[in-house]
Write a protein that binds this DNA or RNA. Structure first.
Lengths: 190, 190
DNA sequence: ATTATCTATAGATCTATAGATAATGC
DNA sequence: ATTATCTATAGATCTATAGATAATGC
């Protein structure tokens, strides 16, 4: 019981990381605090020394769920192979992403639930959307005449919508068709 | 208490219609059976003479939530002003639609929750996506060289994604920018 | 002495069922 | 007689809190 403060901080981050993954997999109300704490190797009671309420956890977990593109870009840059627009698209529509919402884009996993959340979470969301749009705009190739901001918005919307639809459909062929088609048209605009 | 069978059928449809709206507004777990029955002017106990289980209601409610484009197209046709691609886009990205998920597109309101639902509901979803893609393909203008099926998929994905993001963001200017931009680019491809 | 975590539980849900009541419909 | 709906409640959650326990850290 009750070890060091350093240990507590690690424990706190572990709880948030697990929650961030499980929220994307099962939804914001998809599991209880007892289940979450058990997965972290703890028990219910300790939870409220880490978070004022369950909603507090939801807000913190979004920090972990957001920014997957930013992290992908940084990882690519430090590996000497900077992230390209094509690679970002291909990874987004990949089967790995479709089958693993827990480690993927928070928007395709949770957008409607975010829309029903309180202002605080939706404000974090606005910021994150802006960040993602700027990152996307920076990667867009120059050949297309339309402003990069507009194309970034279309790209982001189409990716989120395609993944949302692909995951909702039970028909695998349809899922693949949606993802592949959207990737192709975004990479090769008319 | 206990009136005619004709009355029961009406009651049944009323419960499903209310649920269909509330699911899109509050999510599949956003309210309890007691609350739903109260809104229908009834009490909890009667529910299970109408539905085997809560999941049964969810499945039935999707029939009511799906097919908004089909109904819009039929209404337009019978009013002598057939539905155009532009009108469909403009209505989808309208503020009325953004603010009223309960009467709007089931995908932008519920896609991630459908993805977590059982095979039966996801099979209904596959069918509905196919119907919507065919309807969209039939409305697409011919000027663009790319196959209509592909353009229908991009259009559908971009609309669902744009509305999902616009509703999730707290920043009204950003919401409007996303919806307007996607509508413009879909109506006027490069 | 303080505190990180544990056990136990109160109080508020929510789904589903049992049995009563008051209409319909043969 | 049948049945559409009602009242009441069992049983299973789930969030949050109270109080105990066993470490840390001054």
């Amino acid at each position: 019981m009750g070890y060091s403060q350093a240990q507590k901080e690690k424990t706190h981050k572990r709880i948030v990381a697990i929650a961030s993954k499980r929220f994307r997999e099962k939804g914001l109300a998809g599991f209880g605090i007892a289940e979450l704490m058990k997965e972290a190797g703890l028990t219910v009671g300790g939870f409220y020394k880490h978070f004022e309420s369950r909603d507090e956890l939801v807000a913190e977990a979004f920090s972990g769920a957001f920014g997957t593109w930013q992290r992908q870009k940084e990882a690519a840059a430090s590996s000497g192979q900077p992230l390209s627009f094509e690679k970002l698209i291909d990874d987004y529509v990949s089967d790995a992403h479709r089958k693993n919402p827990g480690t993927g884009c928070a928007f395709s996993a949770l957008a409607p639930e975010i829309a029903r959340s309180d202002k605080r979470i939706r404000a974090l969301t606005s910021e994150q959307i802006q960040n993602d749009l700027e990152l996307l705009a920076g990667l867009l190739p120059g050949k297309d005449k339309r402003p990069v901001r507009s194309r970034a918005i279309l790209t982001f919307s189409a990716l989120v919508g395609a993944m949302s639809l692909a995951r909702a459909a039970s028909d695998e062929a349809l899922s693949h068709e949606i993802l592949k088609t959207v990737a192709d048209l975004l990479k090769h605009p008319a």
